[in-house]
Amino acid sequence: APGVSMGELDRIAQNIIKSHLETCQYTAEELQQLAWQTHSYEEVKMYQSKSREVLWQQCAIQITHAIQYVVEFAKRITGFMELCQNDQILLLKSGCLEVVLVRMCRAFNPLNNTVLFEGKYGGMQMFKALGCDDLVSAVFDFAKSLCSLQLTEEEIALFSAAVLISTDRPWLMEPRKVQKLQEKIYFALQHIMQKNHMDEDALAKLIGRIPTLAALCTLHTEELQAFQQLHPETVNVLFPPLYKELFN
C-alpha cells in the first residue's frame, strides 16, 4: 500500500464517487429510460444531409457541454483542488476530453452500437457529414470496449479521476504530488474492482485502454486542425470559446 490508511483511501474514494454522481450530466436511471429512444430514420437522414460545418459545430457544442461537467467534477475532488492552480489547469486541459470519452461509455448502448446525442440514441451513420469516419468509429469501438468491462458507477468515477489526475502530462509543477494522489485513487479502484469482478485482470484491462484514450484525443486534435484549415471562419465564429481555448 502506498503508505496510506484504509480510512484515508475510503475518504478519497467516497469524495470522488460523490463528485461523479453530482456531475455526471445524466443519471444512470435517465440513461436507462433513454436507452431505447433512438433517432428515427428521418432524423438520421437529416443529420446526414447537414453541412460539414454545421455538424462539426453541433459536436463541438456537445463536447464542450460535457467538458463543463468534467470541470465541475474536478472542482469537487478534494485532492485535485489541493494541487497548485497551474497543475489544475494543465490536468484539465490535457485530460478533460479523455474523461468525457470514459464517461461516454455510460451513454453508449453496446447492444445496438448507438450513443446518446442530442436527446436520443443514434448510430455512427448519424455522424457521416463530419467527414471523420475513422475518429467516429474509433470512439464507438472504445465505448463498446469499455462497456464490455461492465464497470459500476463507482468504478467509472474512480477511473475518470485517475485519468484526469495523471502524471503523464508534461510541464506539471508538482508531479510527485499528482503521482501520490493518482496512486491512492488507483489503489482504491483496485480494491473495489477486486470485490466487484470475478476477472482478476479487470483493472489491468481497464488500464490497458488508456493508450487508446490518448490516441483518440490526438486524432480529435488532428481532425480539428484539418477541418479548421478548410473552415477557419466556422471555428473562429461558431465554435464555443472553451472548446477553442482547449483544443486550438
Binding site: K75, R76, I89, L92, K93, E245, L246
Partner: peptide
C-alpha cells in the same frame, strides 16, 4: 492563457 478554464475553476461551484 486559458482565461475561461481559469475563470471556471475560480467560480463558486455551479
Amino acid at each position: 492563457k486559458h482565461k475561461i478554464l481559469h475563470r471556471l475553476l475560480q467560480n463558486s461551484t455551479s
